[in-house]
């Protein structure tokens, strides 16, 4: 072809817009934050529970709650991303509280087949959005496959990471995944049901203490 596609599409775009380009202002008078006085941690816990996630409020002993979740769900193997705080995993491998779980650290990276044969994954989040009950996971929280292939996802949410509304989400290095509840579909009669290709169980541990 005489002209390459890139030049041709750009030429068409410019011709379509024409010589007069009127300025378009974007009004930003929508809410940029949750209303003043919102208890964002409580709201987050409520909203994420709406998606039928398993929400657990934790005072300070995160590790004890993690052990409880592992025991409750019968988790035998747990994938752990690089950089996940070791404190939260205390006692898991030692059989404390009668829990015996194999920790599978993603270093070197676990294969997809390994992940498929792993019961659960545990991560932190870069941020959480109260109004929408959303977890924000960035590159620092581990490879994306980790929170996708295992059937259960445990996410530790520190209170100081919870923001009120979508426009308040801080810049997070990509790739980024927003997770709002377990995998779901509305494809059958537009009724939402949980559990398709992503993790069918999402456990959110909201750390309220320091």
């Amino acid at each position: 072809m005489p002209v390459n596609a890139r030049d041709e599409v750009l030429r068409r775009v410019r011709a379509a817009i024409g010589p007069r380009r009127e300025h378009v202002d974007v009004p930003r008078d929508y809410r940029r934050a949750a209303p003043d006085g919102t208890d964002v941690v409580a709201l987050f816990a409520e909203r994420v529970a709406d998606y039928r996630a398993d929400v657990r409020l934790v005072g300070w002993d995160v590790a004890a709650e993690v052990r409880r979740v592992v025991r409750d769900l019968g988790i035998r193997s747990l994938a752990v991303p690089v950089g996940f705080p070791a404190d939260y995993l205390t006692g898991l491998e030692d059989g404390l509280d009668g829990v015996g779980v194999e920790l599978r650290r993603d270093d070197p990276p676990l294969s997809t087949a390994d992940l498929d044969a792993t019961d659960a994954v545990i991560t932190e989040c870069a941020a959480a959005i109260a109004e929408t009950g959303t977890l924000v996971l960035g590159a620092a929280q581990g490879r994306r496959a980790l929170t996708l292939v295992p059937d259960r996802h445990l996410c530790v949410v520190r209170a100081d990471r919870v923001v009120g509304a979508v426009p308040e989400v801080p810049e997070v290095p990509m790739p980024v995944t927003w997770i709002s509840g377990p995998s779901a579909t509305s494809d059958i009669e537009l009724h939402r049901v949980e559990g398709v290709h992503g993790p069918r169980t999402l456990v959110v541990l909201v750390v309220t203490g320091s």
Partner: peptide, 13 residues
């Protein structure tokens, strides 16, 4: 879908 947020949103560069 009438949800506050959909279950998954992926952003990549």
């Amino acid at each position: 879908t009438g949800e506050r947020m959909n279950p998954y949103t992926s952003f990549w560069r």
